[in-house]
Computed example of a mutant assay.
Amino acid sequence: MRIAFVGKGGSGKTTLSALFSRHLARSGAPVLAVDGDINQHLAEALGHDGDEALDAPPLGAHVADIKDFLRGTNPRIASREAMIKTTPPGRGSRLLRLLGDDELHARHVRRVGDVPLMVTGEFEESDLGVACYHSKLGGVELYLNHLVDGPGEYVVVDMTAGADAFASGLFTRFDLTFLVAEPTRKGVSVYHQYRDHAREFGIRIAVVGNKVTGEDDLLFLKDHVGDDLLTHLVQSTWVRAAEQGCPEGDLESLEPHNRHALSLLRETVDAHPRDWAALHRHAVEFHLRNARSWANEAIGLDLTSQVDPDFVPGPAALV
């Protein structure tokens, strides 16, 4: 199952991404956390010492190599240059198992505490004025397009802040998107943008209230997001201590209400099995959009022909 955490900057989405990933790992479930935010802080939220460099080559710096690996022997993809981030898999493509024994996972995954982590990489000074951060997210989109994850397996992605995630088709790659909202007008403003975009494409979202201090905060969230409010987390002294570098015990020491909220998030994710056909249909739709709007002209090829009409990814495709 694939889960995205989105929300306004400062809402706590990175903290929630880390807490949920640790909650899953603590249960023994296979889980991979992915930092897809322009501000790369998920490693620190998982417990990595921010003063030390994370020994994990970023996906964004190796997109060309990732393309070469994933296209495999797919005859519809002539070269890495002909493969764009939305190119869907077909017969001959390399499909991935979560945390499988392959060169992509071996190169890019590093364990932070109990949680395996991949990072997209920071927006560097050399990118200013000449590159879009979403080009770095191409590695994540390609990874998810070629991943065949099963029930009880989880990919948790900390996405870019605000509604910026809709600037690419990556937002359609998830089974459920958790929108983290503080009980303020700014905190719920992103919700209205996400709600409208998500409904257009049939994307499931659920709102998670954060930093709730009392009944008034909870009523405020209910008034502004209605039935989309799934649960909430209360203001946490444990989280604050962890952010200051001195956590008081392991995740079991988190406030009981907040531990229950994390369990509810998992129950909600598990309650909706994957529809592989719908997932692939979205991938094809956004690939065709990109091909016709810019990529055909930029590459000099008809990239719509990369769609394999007789292929749908999933467990059967692995066989």
Score class of each variant (00 low, 15 high):
1 M>F: 10
3 I>K: 13
6 V>L: 12
6 V>W: 04
9 G>F: 05
14 T>H: 08
19 L>R: 02
22 R>K: 13
25 A>E: 09
29 A>I: 03
30 P>A: 07
32 L>G: 03
33 A>N: 00
33 A>R: 09
37 D>R: 03
40 Q>H: 07
45 A>G: 05
47 G>L: 06
49 D>R: 08
50 G>M: 09
50 G>I: 06
63 V>G: 00
65 D>M: 08
66 I>S: 01
67 K>S: 08
68 D>P: 03
69 F>Y: 15
79 S>N: 09
85 K>T: 00
85 K>D: 01
87 T>R: 13
87 T>N: 00
88 P>G: 03
90 G>P: 03
91 R>D: 04
91 R>I: 01
96 L>M: 07
99 L>W: 00
103 E>A: 15
107 R>F: 05
108 H>Y: 13
111 R>L: 04
114 D>T: 12
122 E>H: 13
127 D>R: 06
128 L>F: 12
132 C>G: 05
133 Y>C: 04
137 L>G: 07
137 L>W: 00
149 D>C: 06
153 E>L: 10
153 E>G: 09
156 V>L: 04
160 T>K: 08
162 G>K: 04
164 D>H: 10
166 F>S: 05
167 A>Q: 10
171 F>D: 06
175 D>M: 06
177 T>S: 12
178 F>V: 07
182 E>V: 05
182 E>S: 13
183 P>S: 08
184 T>W: 05
184 T>Q: 08
185 R>S: 09
186 K>P: 02
186 K>N: 09
197 H>V: 15
198 A>T: 04
201 F>D: 13
203 I>E: 11
206 A>M: 05
206 A>G: 06
210 N>Y: 11
211 K>Q: 13
220 F>E: 10
224 H>W: 14
226 G>V: 04
226 G>A: 11
229 L>N: 12
230 L>F: 12
232 H>Q: 10
232 H>W: 15
232 H>S: 14
233 L>G: 07
233 L>W: 06
237 T>E: 15
245 G>L: 05
246 C>S: 14
255 E>H: 03
257 H>V: 13
257 H>I: 09
262 L>W: 00
263 S>E: 15
265 L>M: 13
267 E>W: 10
267 E>S: 05
268 T>L: 07
271 A>E: 14
273 P>H: 09
276 W>C: 05
276 W>P: 11
278 A>Y: 06
281 R>M: 02
281 R>K: 12
284 V>L: 02
291 A>V: 02
294 W>D: 07
296 N>M: 11
300 G>C: 05
301 L>S: 01
303 L>N: 05
307 V>Q: 12
